[in-house]
Amino acid sequence: MRYQRWFTPWVLVIPALTWLLVFNLWPSVNTVILSFTNAKPLGGGTFVGLRNFETLLQDEQLRWALLNSVIYMVVCLPFLTVLPLLLAVLVEKKLPGITFFRTAFYTPVVASAVVVALIWQWILDDRGLVNGLAEKLGVISGPLPFLSDQWLLLFSAISLTIWKGLGYYMIIYLAALGNVGRDLHEAAAVDGAGPLRRFVHITVPGVRGTMILISILISVSALRVFSELFILTGGKGGPGGRDNSVVMLIQQYSQGFEGNLGYASALSIVLFFVTVVPMLILARLNRRGAEA
């Protein structure tokens, strides 16, 4: 049964649908088309066949970027699935002032990655807070090169991403915790189960679905990392360009007279496949877990 003129729904949907077509669907198609060209950032370009994809195979920076992405994902996953859940349990109980703590813990999320990375750049500076304190305490004799060593730089960016993500996943867990039966907790407590056992046997299974969703989100966002690495490496991708991410490479090819949007598009297709694979694996894992 319809209760309005046939075009009314379309009038309401058309703006959003136009945006979807012009800025989502068409660009997806166009990315594939562009990847067979050598389009320039300022316009122009010709069809070059598979040349961009041949270049991909020999791109040493891309190999480093992919390796970095995998490391990023593997390190972020355990930290960001577990720590935010503990935080959510911590802020779940409505103690006086808890809203303040929830808001405060969420602050790193609302701050721009650029702001946060500049703050950490200063903290991790050769003469910054961390090195200064560590030297004072006698843990190290000279400053650790957090911002100039290939691996320290990568792990600095990873810890920054983890720190910035805590509040975000905490909030998602917090929403999920609301659905975990309180009576279940109470019953377990009657039976003498301590907080730890209740956490492992009630809370964790109760938020299992959310946990899978969160691990998908973490994996995808780890593979898409850009701002943190860009700022910490000063946009240069670290020593020898070995601290790039795939998105950083895409950005580098998007600019200037030497830019190549065709190659950047080919890199975008690589990005698409590397982000889709973990998504499919985790979604499958979810389904199998649900059946079991």
Partner: peptide, 29 residues
């Protein structure tokens, strides 16, 4: 309305696509 499910499906489908993948062709647009 007719086509509602299709439109809904289109919106859902774009969610799996990370924005960075299309950022270059978005710039071209």
């Amino acid at each position: 309305f007719r086509g509602r499910r299709l439109v809904l499906g289109l919106f859902l489908a774009t969610l799996v696509l990370p924005g960075e993948v299309t950022i270059i062709s978005q710039y071209v647009t």
